[in-house]
Design a binder for these strands. Structure first.
Lengths: 231, 231
DNA sequence: ATCTATAATTTGTCTAGTTGTATATTGATG
DNA sequence: CATCAATATACAACTAGACAAATTATAGAT
């Protein structure tokens, strides 16, 4: 079986670190030329590598090497950058911001009326240059004005809150469910459509109980473990 | 299909009122970043939204929502249509003025000779920041001298007439037809070429029967209902 | 201040390249 | 002959990049 040899060779290359995390490996056509086989034979080898979690592919772009796994601790004070425990360095990036009216759900979670405005920030979290989470956060206007402009330059929510004079905040509630990735979510998280995701809905509050953030985060299921703490 | 999900999400955002009528939605590049796709994939989603009539785009400027989603708010539209028989629209703006010889048609409508001059004012009317009508008005020189300079600072015709000493005037005749949008009209009204328009020709007169205005107005068909009252 | 020339944005269009999917064919093996 | 691996071919969906055309923002000059 030709494709198994190719799989073995590619796996060795990845493990040997010839391609670092997040890096693009040669195209299927190129690999087919190199191994002197048909493109579909290469695809079969890549398919196994994909299932094993070593690489992920983006239609139209190429095949990329997957990063490492991590665990995410959820407690009373959860901060993304401090709570990811792994070998790699986590980073995050804000992909879009907007200000709009609150939906019914958001209004309820943030103690607002639907006529009130919310600031919305959407972003991705990375580990080893590969996406590991996607988050949408709603902040109540009035209590958090100016947070979006801050987040655009520095994606750290802790820093942003600090800049607004909020030195400390607490996790009030955390709801965790499991969902499967839609095409869009799969694309954003560079995982397969239908892959299991962890969906975390959370509310952060001030020490006096005033809600200041309602967020929904999706983690890639098989790259992330949530550990919940009740101290 | 990624672009279909993006289309669905954008449509939801528009429907939910996250972007209000006439407002600019994020640029294609921004949306591409947010959904983590190529700009062309966003364009395909926007293309469907355009075809469905929810947004329109202006090269070099951006993509804007049409306000079609807000048409179920009959209140504004009703008030709007009530005002058609009298003076004007909630927000209007004079785009150009000129003084020239009367055409044969204008001369007939305004009881002039073709050697007489007419003052011409062209303008746009807006509803919720979206253009909804285009009007051209001809005023007979001699009876309405100085009206153009006034209209340029204040687009209200009632005020302009009042400034000329005309406290009251009546609608003599109103003709309504349906036409399709030419390229020029489509551009001014931010609608598609070939879109259905309502064309209203009207003549306003003094209480003694002297005509003081002949006008042609085009309304966007699917955003406007004319209600005709015979009191 | 106001107008003007320049630069920066933003949409429209085009070409090329890459992965995903479906179907059909070849060739060796039992 | 039936089966399975590999090949061959074609198309769809998406990415990547470049450039043109229209608009908007910016800086400079008068």
């Amino acid at each position: 079986m030709l494709w198994k040899e190719i799989h073995h060779k590619l796996l060795n290359d990845v493990r040997a670190g010839h391609y670092s995390a997040g890096e693009k490996i040669p195209t299927e056509a190129e690999l087919a030329r190199r191994f002197n086989v048909n493109r579909h034979t290469v695809r079969r080898a890549l398919s196994l590598l994909r299932d094993e979690g070593f690489v992920f592919s983006k239609r139209g772009a190429g095949v990329f090497v997957t990063g490492k796994n991590a665990t995410y601790r959820i407690g009373k004070r959860t901060r993304f950058s401090q709570n990811i425990s792994s070998d790699g360095v986590p980073s995050r990036q804000v992909t879009s911001v907007e200000t709009r009216h609150a939906t019914y759900l958001e209004a309820g979670k943030l103690a607002l009326k639907t006529s009130d405005m919310v600031h919305v920030a959407e972003g991705l979290g990375y580990l080893e240059n590969t996406p590991i989470m996607h988050s949408v956060s709603q902040f109540p206007a009035g209590r958090c004005d100016g947070i979006l402009t801050y987040l655009q330059t520095n994606p750290s929510k802790t820093d942003a809150f600090a800049a607004l004079g909020i030195a400390d905040y607490l996790r009030k509630e955390t709801e965790v469910t499991a969902v499967t990735a839609t095409a869009m979510m799969a694309n954003m998280l560079s995982c397969a459509v239908g892959a299991p995701l962890l969906r975390v809905n959370s509310v952060n509050i001030l020490v006096d109980g005033t809600p200041i953030e309602y967020g929904t985060t999706h983690f890639i299921g098989d790259r992330m473990v949530l550990s919940v703490h009740n101290e």
